[in-house]
Amino acid sequence: MKVLVAVKRVIDYNVKVRVKPDNTGVDLANVKMAMNPFCEIAVEEAVRLKEKGVASEIVVVSIGPKAAQEQIRTALALGADRGIHIETDEEVQSLEAAKLLKSVVEKEEPKLVILGKQSIDSDNNQTGQMLAALTGMGQGTFASEVVVEGEKVNVTREIDGGLVTVALNLPAVVTTDLRLNEPRYASLPNIMKAKKKPLESMSPADLGVDIANRLSTLKVEAPASRQAGVKVADVAELVDKLKNEAKVI
């Protein structure tokens, strides 16, 4: 079966985010970018399904500027077979991203679509669910285990307070949580091979999708900074402060 994986280019998770002085957004100039960590887990899961003989082909898609092709190449180096780049320099919000992915789903007809549960930039946690709703598919969000059995997929989901397993008809959408797997690193020979794998590029207009934003960002600010507090001399003083000063125990 064919598996479609969506990946997003974001600020590397180890980079300290800085808000622009004019409060219009976050400074992305000369900042290290990388594949969203949850998307890495999505790619890894697809590759494992292929290694198990469950998946026959892995198509990776990314929406973003020209440079997002780096993240597609990374996914190809990890084991995806071909890439689709929907190129735009505009900000694409979740609903519009879901509409773009829907048009890719209609063309590619994958049995399974795997996405990260959220991107660590906008933290919306929406695109996978929206894609599932728009395509009339079932969804297994925040997955910690994915088992394909015939025309169904059983997805174990991380929920508040535990785990729940749901059975979904295929085709279906899965979004990944941290415990699903530990992504591998790409080997140098595979990175070289990835450069020769097919990568198709198109624009949102080619897909007939209007990507105008529905949400306007009025301003972006740094969070109220915490002041370093006091050093306590010993544990007794700490407990006394927590009980009598902060009143939190």
């Binding site: 600020i11 300290k16 985010v17 808000v19 976050v26 919000q93 979740s94 609903l95 660590i120 930039d121 906008s122 933290d123 919306n124 946690n125 929406q126 929206m130 529905r214 949400l215 306007s216 960002t217 009025l218 301003k219 972006v220 600010e221 740094a222 969070p223």
Partner: peptide
Amino acid sequence: AQVSDIMRVESEDTFVRPIYAGNAIATVK
């Protein structure tokens, strides 16, 4: 569109929410 995880209401259509895991705070309409 959906507005996720709001932490403050500014008006009937404007809300404050964390982005970048709380390293930045966005006001969105």
